[in-house]
């Protein structure tokens, strides 16, 4: 197997990680709300998507339904649980870990403990030749989708009125309120979008990173590594962190399979030592 294939594979995994952690980066970094249940939202999306696909409704429908379901759950979580404790990060940590544990058990109760298999849609199955190696079509499609998502999110955050309000609301919520904007509902909306994207990533990640009970914890760990490396609060930071982790993970497993179990944590520790604020940080 050649290195072009490994690099592409790292980019595909990195863009998947970006979708998983974009919501976490924005809600934690911009809104200062730490939701450790982010992994749970990914897993709910993954399992809901599995059920929709097995009901015969197709992969695309599964993505849409998973997005909507996790967005609603995320909105409810923010509206009824997190808003009350929005200035207390320790309370947020305890509460959201509790929610994560409950969601993990509920998933096992509904779907059972056996890992599920989610196959790519049939028109994206198979492989293509790339520079003398073979690469699955599904992962190429994922790269394409990831790039589009990156552009849409950066545009949304930096160039739209909604993005401007979100950024302003964090820096000076009094001023935003004076303009007649309801900050509570704004936070709920942003939270819902972040949750929905994580749920969508659950379906998209199925054929690559698996649909299994316990993925909520694995994914949460990776998302936190991404956010730590990329820095909080910017879409660009999440993208940089995600690509970095995706490539390190792929290339280190290929070059030194012996260190596979901890290869992504080494760069995280190095970044924490050298640049505790992360590689890219939103200037305040």
């Amino acid at each position: 197997m050649n290195w072009t294939v490994q690099i592409l594979n790292g980019v595909a995994f990195g863009l998947l990680l970006f979708l998983i952690s974009a919501g976490l980066s924005v809600t934690f970094g911009v809104m200062r709300v730490l939701n450790l249940n982010h992994g749970g939202l990914y897993a709910i999306g993954a399992f809901v998507g599995y059920s929709v696909i097995h009901a015969g409704w197709g992969f695309g429908t599964a993505c849409v339904i998973a997005f909507v379901v996790t967005a609603v759950i995320g909105a409810l979580e923010e509206k009824f649980l997190l808003w009350r404790i929005r200035h207390d990060e320790l309370a947020q940590v305890l509460l959201t870990i509790g929610v994560l544990l409950v969601i993990s058990d509920v998933i096992e109760w509904i779907w059972g403990a056996a890992p599920k298999r989610v196959a790519p849609p049939s028109f994206l199955s198979g492989s293509v030749d790339i520079m003398g190696g073979q690469f699955p079509v599904y992962r190429l499609a994922l790269i394409l989708f990831g790039v589009v998502a990156v552009l849409v999110l950066i545009f949304g955050m930096d160039r739209t009125r909604l993005g401007a309000i979100v950024r302003a609301g964090v820096d000076d919520d009094e001023l935003v309120r004076l303009h007649g904007i309801d900050l509570h509902w704004l936070f709920v909306a942003v939270f819902a979008v972040g949750a929905g994207i994580a749920g969508l990533a659950g379906v998209l990640g199925g054929p690559i990173s698996g649909t299994y009970v316990g993925s909520e914890y694995d994914v949460l760990t990776l998302a936190l590594v991404v956010v730590v490396i990329g820095g909080l609060g910017s879409i660009q930071g999440a993208l940089l962190g995600a690509l970095f982790v995706g490539l390190i993970d792929s290339l280190s497993k290929a070059a030194f399979p012996e260190v596979a179990a901890f290869s992504v944590y080494v760069p995280m520790i190095l970044v924490l030592v050298a640049r505790p604020q992360g590689l890219l940080v939103r200037s305040s």
């Binding site: 197997m1 294939v5 995994f13 792929s250 290339l251 290929a254 070059a255 399979p257 596979a260």
Partner: peptide, 9 residues
């Protein structure tokens, strides 16, 4: 979940 990197060996 993903054996692709290991297969590079």
């Amino acid at each position: 979940q993903d054996f692709a990197p290991f297969l590079a060996n």
